[in-house]
Structure formats: C-alpha cells, structure tokens
Amino acid sequence: MKTLPLEGIRIIAVEQYGAGPYGSMFLADLGAEVIKIENPKIGGDVSRQTGPFFLGENDSYFFQTFNLNKKSLTLDLKSDSGRAVFEKLVKTADAVTNNLRGDQPEKLGITYDKLKHINPKIVCGHLSAYGRDNDRASWPGYDYLMQAEAGLMSLTGEPDQPPARFGVSMIDFMTGAVASLGLTSALLGAHRTGQGRDVDVSLFDVALHQLSYPATWYFNQGHVTERLARSAHPATVPCQLYKTADGYIFLMAMTDKFWHVLVDLLDDATLKQERFATVAQRRDNRDLLTTEIDRALSAHNTDYWLEHLKGQIPCAPVLDLPQALQNPYIHDIGMVRTVKHPEKHDMQVLGCPIKVDGQRMAGKAAGPMGCDTNDLLGSLGYSADDIANLKADGAI
C-alpha cells in the first residue's frame, strides 16, 4: 500500500496499559505517526512488565498486543527540561491523546487550554475512567468496575448464576475505539478551521452507552431486560444456543424470512405449527420452541448442521480459544499477521480489522522503550550534547 489515510498526522500519546493504547494503535495502523511518551523513571508503560509471557528485558506479549507501529520517546513530563521537549514536540504535532485519571491532564498541562498558545490547531483527547468534569474525576477505575456499575454484568451469564463479566476487557476496547473516533473527528475539524479543542471519552460513559435498546425500553416503558438461558436474545426467537447431538450451535433466525428457511431446512412438522408462525408467537412460546428445536437438532452433530445451514441461516459453532485461533477462516481472511521482533522473528498477532483499498495494514513490532528518542530529539533541533544533558538530568 503506497499511502495510508492518516499519513502525515503526528499524534503524541501519553498512555499506558489497555484502553488508550488499543485505540491509538488503530491510528498508527492507519498511518499516523504515534509517538508514545514513556516515563523513564518508572520503566515506561506498565504493560511492558505485564506477564506472564515476556520478550526479553522490559517487554511483553501484552505490551506488543497494544503498541504495534508506534514510536517510543522517553520523557519525564514533570521535569522542566522534559516539559520543554514536550512543548517543542507539540508545535509539530496534530494531536495529544492520553488515558490518564481524570484530574491528571490539567495537572500535567496537556489540555487544549494549556497548549493552544503553542499550537492553536492541537487536538487534545482525554480517555479517563469517569471523565474530567464531575466529582469522580480523581477516581481511578478499570473495565470490570464499569461492567459492574453500568448494569452489564447483570445481563451476562445464565439466569441462576452470579452476575458475570465479559470474557475480555471489552469496555477498554470499546472506549479506546470511541476515543480514536472522537480524536479523528476533531482532527478533521481542526484541519478545516485551524481551531483545536478537547475531546473527552470515559470508560463509564461508554459502558453505560452499551445498554443501548434495553435502556431505551426501560426509560420509556419501564421494561427491565433480564438474563435468559443459553444467551438468548431478549426479544427475538429463535436466537440462542441450541443442542445438537454432540454439543451446541448458535442459531439466529431474526426475521420471519429466516424462520421459514429454518423450518424448511429442518423439515420438522412440529415447527410448522401455527403457534410458532410469527415473531410474537415464537417469543410467547420460547421455552416450548427451544425444546422442539433441541429435539430436531439432536438428530445430528454440530458439524452436520453447520454444513447443512451455512449461508442460509445465520449460525455459528461455539469454539473455545484454541479452536477460534486455529480456525482456517481467520487465516484465509488475513486476520493473523506475523511481525518481526528481536526476541521472536515470527511473532504472531491479530490483524487489523480495518481494510483500506481491500488490504489490511501491515504490522510492525513495538520497539524497546525510548528507541526513537534520539531521532525525534534530533529532528526537533537537539544536538548530541543536548541529548546527553537531558539524559543526565533524567528528563529522557
């Protein structure tokens, strides 16, 4: 690919761990120069030391997962000389993004109000736990807490079991993606008007927003959506796990059209009864319909039904982690990419889900902490002696 959509965009990322790095990695994949600021006094991004699997000294598979295609600049933003470097960098940048606690951007001076005199076009993105403008601004917070308080855990799992979290940190990932959308939108505005701004996204707000239509139902009709057995959809039937001869299959006949196709493919007289004819009737008879579909599907194993139904009824196998990652389909579509790392020349990671001109972007491993420091400082006009003095002061 000769050019990428965000080529020429420079983004300074004051970030660590999951949500912020996940979001800014999309920007790096799409061609932006993402300069990751890593504090030399604490060993850089804490996820470099997040185990249990490491890649030499001060690097880990966890860190690599969220930091492909980025540059690393060691910089102590709290030191005077480090701040001077930062401000020179801001002059050359299009955006500054962070995922700090809500009260920290103001203290570190990385808000638009603090930076606009340096670069009026600078966009400042803030990803925090609870936002910067309320009484929780100073609270630390993590994904699982948001799932709990936003009501998502109450909707996850089987009805007779304790509330459950998602299997991965989905709120971190959703918030990172939303933050990058907000930042990109503000960048477009700044390039059009010459005026930068602040853009705020919080884990809690994004988690709450995922309640989506159950929230609308509750606000306007007082309806309380509850967990249903086998991960069933709250309104559409059949849409859940069903038993086969050797396990489960997930079926989603979300419309009358798909229902009629399913009935024809299963060729079962009981399913053709009038009481299952409409969406409302199928919902009213959910338990009975589950029993009848289980009976019909139990005649054959899951592989048989996947082959029989594929392309005609939305359906999927229920795979465990190894099965999902060994699925030939994900390799066929390029969702596994190999990147070179000094400690592992054939490191495999997941591919970017965004395609540009029909192609997925290439991956480049994240380098050692501060690997781009000298080059970046040199481009800002710092001499070798200047850089040596900054290192001696502990600023880089």
Results as ranks from 00 to 15, higher is better:
residue 2 K to Q: 15
residue 5 P to Y: 14
residue 9 I to N: 10
residue 9 I to C: 13
residue 13 A to N: 12
residue 14 V to C: 15
residue 16 Q to L: 03
residue 17 Y to P: 02
residue 19 A to I: 10
residue 21 P to H: 11
residue 24 S to Y: 11
residue 25 M to C: 07
residue 30 L to E: 05
residue 37 I to E: 13
residue 55 L to H: 08
residue 58 N to D: 15
residue 62 F to W: 08
residue 62 F to V: 06
residue 67 N to H: 01
residue 74 T to W: 00
residue 82 G to E: 02
residue 84 A to Q: 10
residue 91 K to D: 09
residue 92 T to H: 08
residue 94 D to I: 04
residue 95 A to L: 05
residue 104 Q to H: 09
residue 112 Y to R: 08
residue 115 L to R: 02
residue 115 L to A: 03
residue 116 K to T: 07
residue 118 I to E: 03
residue 120 P to G: 14
residue 125 G to M: 13
residue 126 H to D: 12
residue 127 L to M: 15
residue 135 D to V: 07
residue 136 R to G: 09
residue 137 A to P: 03
residue 139 W to I: 00
residue 140 P to D: 15
residue 140 P to N: 13
residue 141 G to R: 10
residue 141 G to W: 08
residue 142 Y to Q: 11
residue 153 M to C: 14
residue 158 E to C: 06
residue 158 E to K: 10
residue 159 P to I: 05
residue 161 Q to C: 09
residue 162 P to L: 07
residue 164 A to G: 02
residue 164 A to L: 11
residue 168 V to P: 00
residue 171 I to T: 13
residue 172 D to S: 03
residue 177 A to I: 08
residue 182 G to R: 02
residue 184 T to Y: 04
residue 184 T to P: 01
residue 192 R to M: 06
residue 195 Q to T: 12
residue 198 D to M: 01
residue 202 S to T: 02
residue 203 L to H: 06
residue 204 F to K: 00
residue 210 Q to G: 00
residue 211 L to W: 00
residue 217 W to T: 05
residue 220 N to A: 00
residue 226 E to Q: 12
residue 228 L to S: 01
residue 228 L to C: 00
residue 228 L to N: 01
residue 235 A to T: 07
residue 237 V to A: 05
residue 238 P to Y: 03
residue 241 L to D: 03
residue 246 D to N: 14
residue 255 T to M: 05
residue 264 D to T: 15
residue 271 L to D: 08
residue 277 A to L: 13
residue 284 D to R: 11
residue 286 R to N: 02
residue 288 L to S: 11
residue 289 L to G: 05
residue 296 A to S: 15
residue 299 A to Q: 13
residue 302 T to I: 10
residue 304 Y to L: 08
residue 305 W to F: 06
residue 305 W to G: 04
residue 309 L to V: 09
residue 316 A to S: 15
residue 318 V to T: 13
residue 318 V to E: 09
residue 322 P to Q: 10
residue 323 Q to A: 15
residue 325 L to Q: 09
residue 325 L to V: 09
residue 326 Q to C: 10
residue 329 Y to R: 12
residue 330 I to V: 15
residue 333 I to E: 13
residue 334 G to H: 06
residue 337 R to Q: 13
residue 344 K to N: 14
residue 345 H to K: 14
residue 346 D to G: 06
residue 347 M to W: 10
residue 348 Q to R: 13
residue 354 I to C: 07
residue 357 D to L: 02
residue 359 Q to L: 11
residue 362 A to R: 07
residue 365 A to I: 04
residue 366 A to S: 13
residue 370 G to K: 06
residue 372 D to N: 13
residue 372 D to L: 04
residue 377 L to T: 11
residue 380 L to G: 06
residue 380 L to K: 04
residue 383 S to E: 03
residue 384 A to V: 09
residue 389 N to C: 05
residue 390 L to G: 02
